[in-house]
Design a protein around this nucleic acid. Sequence first.
DNA 1: ATAATAGTGTCTTTTAGACATTATATT
DNA 2: AATATAATGTCTAAAAGACACTATTAT
Lengths: 220, 220
Amino acid sequence: MQADNFEKPIVTADVVLLTIVDRRLHVALARRKVPPFEGEEALIGGFVHVDEDKDVDETVARVLMAKTGLKKIYFEQLASFAGRLRDPRGWSVSIAYMALVPAVRLVDSTALMLRPVDEVRGLPFDHSDILDAAVGRLRGKGAYSTLPMQLLDRKFTLPALQEVYEQVMGVNLDTSSFRRKIAELEVVEATDEFEAPAPRKRPGRLYRAKRGVLMFDRTI
Amino acid sequence: MQADNFEKPIVTADVVLLTIVDRRLHVALARRKVPPFEGEEALIGGFVHVDEDKDVDETVARVLMAKTGLKKIYFEQLASFAGRLRDPRGWSVSIAYMALVPAVRLVDSTALMLRPVDEVRGLPFDHSDILDAAVGRLRGKGAYSTLPMQLLDRKFTLPALQEVYEQVMGVNLDTSSFRRKIAELEVVEATDEFEAPAPRKRPGRLYRAKRGVLMFDRTI
DNA sequence: ATAATAGTGTCTTTTAGACATTATATT
DNA sequence: AATATAATGTCTAAAAGACACTATTAT
């Protein structure tokens, strides 16, 4: 039994790049320049280059760099989508990733279209399923982790943090309880800075995420 | 840009088949009959057959049938492990699955070796990483779901259920609290049967899992 | 002073943990 | 009756939710 005896599937990496714009979760789509589905908006992604990429994380980093110009975007593997019918070119494997980025970092990514996730319909391939999986992962894991902090800039106010959690979880949170939790979990540290002044508003203190993405054993 | 321009990786499905024997979590390993790592114990798995399998779930079902003789084993996708160095045959993708089965169903699987998960060392390829991922998933998700019920036979007593949760979570649970939770969550239904009599012991009532695997928003 | 949001304090309700007690089977 | 485990009840402690209140900034 040799590997060469088997016809090999096509292997791609597809990335669900999520961000928050105007208090709503958006996904970054790119118009396809080549068939199949040429001209349609789709998730960003590309073939695994076995000569160039030593693993799929390198494929993903390469894809993100090509589409956004950014290094060091947070991403994690979601799941793989594989089968005979999902790609007209033949039996294929898509190793799907979720990436999170604060919208401010995407200002120069003119090639990308940001679409509200709940308005996106009819993506090519099984990209709608992949998008659903990413949103599901963020909603599910978000409530138990600091994952949503990846959608905020490096420094942020607690009201901004609360709002991101509310967006991700789809519920309103009580300010007092939310702050109690954040304090107990010790996931942020206060800076001595405050947000930029706005008309008729008290500026909030700026905080910074402590370490990487942390998991809790309870909901926020 | 055509698919054919790229050299394609090898694609396999590897399955971490877990069960509980003597109150301890075990993994099913098979001795490899072909190179590489011929003669060593490894996770069960095999190549994706693009002509035969319409998706990877079919690959996994085929692998489980071949190694255990069983259909309808619970399994779920874990993650994919991919890269240039994990397989000496070249750039490869392993789509890893976790499967859970009650030990009683494995009585005839003579080709499989059941090893306690915390005693297994030095598996070939990156199978140790894959095993760790499966055990981590079971421990993590187990506390928030009915996943551990898949390790029990169709009918089971509440003390047996509690013990499986204790094994999976690695802690002792208070009987009263555990039963309160199970009752609140309404995840099992009582039968009118009782377990087989044992010396000097009151037999426990038999219960049955209600639907498939359910998630909670709290720990058991 | 007023508007607006940031941030805190306190009471209530819910949930979880500890642990004693009762129940029922076998020998 | 004795033993062993199944099953339940009750009290305490901790966590979460509701909501009023205070603080600080810009106008």
